[in-house]
Write a protein that binds this DNA or RNA. Structure first.
Lengths: 199, 199
DNA sequence: CGTTATTTGGAGCTTAAACAACAAATGACG
DNA sequence: CGTCATTTGTTGTTTAAGCTCCAAATAACG
């Protein structure tokens, strides 16, 4: 009897509908710009009735938000170990994955869709923030700190660095990106942890 | 109020369930042998409840039948022009597609699954037979012939040739396969058509 | 401009599918 | 050989999602 109440306890049909809708949106976005995609298009492609679409999302922008967030979370989940904790290695992975995700995004979608980046920003910083919050909570902090606040600041810093890197006309390697950013992030986080992090 | 009653007029949910199930089976078959796959595996992968599986198929063999038939039909539909008729070109396409499909099948599934080939045979000859029947019906035949009978014989001949070719240790090109078989098939069909076929 | 099409967002009714729980087969193991 | 675990089919009950219309908002067009 754990206290863990899984928010996402859900009907298989609901989960499937969500998966199908975001997969459909993604496929459509690789071949046409977001603006020109209609809800009907998405519904058809996902084999979902249009009315059902509206049972789950306000509009296609809400779906895009959701799709980005989930896709990024999945990507991250695949890279990070199961019950990951706050270590330099994991932080490096987080940085690298964020950078590479943005880079892939830039290649995957249409030029005109670059105006959507603010939405992407919101969802990704949320996802990063959640992970950081978990990590920070797992630490014995020297003094009482607002974990959410630190996590938010850090997530924005990470996202900003990733955007900067992925925007470069000719980005250097992911490794060097991590090498250049990790020390800064680590330094800012080091202060809240009294236990030295593993290398 | 047309007289056309579409047999396959179906609920979107039903069509989607069928699609998801056969996709799931296909994916699982590329990584493990059919015999070791459970209905639960398929259901999980397709995001379908196991009970729902049984609403549609007797067992996994029934699904396999269906999956093969539909996949082959789709492949054929993609190669043949829309309202295809009986021409030497289309017959050549039919031959080639059948051969290539079998070859792909042989590569796609596990060695042990080769015992499943009789099931494949049934479904593919049915699919070929349906097309040939349509083609033959579209002809002005010189004398009354049983279109279904001719179609069946021909479909078996085509399938047999395709098996023979795809079984070869080192199969020659699809073009030469078509070149070697087409004349025979054409000759046997020529007799029922009084109009000479286009080259 | 006004007049057509699309697209959007929703509501009521119907139905496919989820869920849970079961007994019966099948199978692995000591 | 029995027993413990899977897998298989099946059956009610509940619910998500389909379908059919409808009205409002946009877009397209002559």
């Amino acid at each position: 009897m754990s206290l863990i109440h899984r928010e996402k306890t859900q009907d298989l049909r609901v989960r499937r509908t969500h998966v199908l809708l975001r997969k459909a949106l993604w496929e459509l976005m690789t071949e046409q710009e977001f603006q020109s995609i209609t809800v009907q298009d998405i519904a058809d492609h996902a084999m979902i009735n249009r009315a059902t679409f509206y049972d789950h999302f306000m509009d296609k922008y809400a779906l895009l938000d959701y799709a980005i967030r989930e896709q990024f979370k999945e990507t991250l989940g695949a890279k990070l170990p199961e019950g990951s904790t706050f270590t330099a290695e994991n932080l490096a992975l987080l940085l690298r994955t964020t950078g590479e995700y943005l880079l892939a995004l830039r290649h995957g979608c249409k030029p005109k869709d670059h105006q959507l980046l603010p939405m992407v920003q919101t969802q990704i910083t949320i996802a990063i923030g959640e992970i950081l919050t978990d990590w920070i909570k797992g630490l014995r902090t020297s003094r009482s700190v607002d974990a959410a606040l630190v996590a938010t600041m850090t997530s924005w810093a990470i996202y900003g660095a990733a955007v900067y890197w992925s925007q470069q006309p000719d980005p250097d390697s992911p490794e060097s990106f991590v090498a250049q950013t990790l020390p800064t992030i680590l330094a800012s986080l080091q202060q809240i942890s009294n236990a030295p992090l593993s290398r």
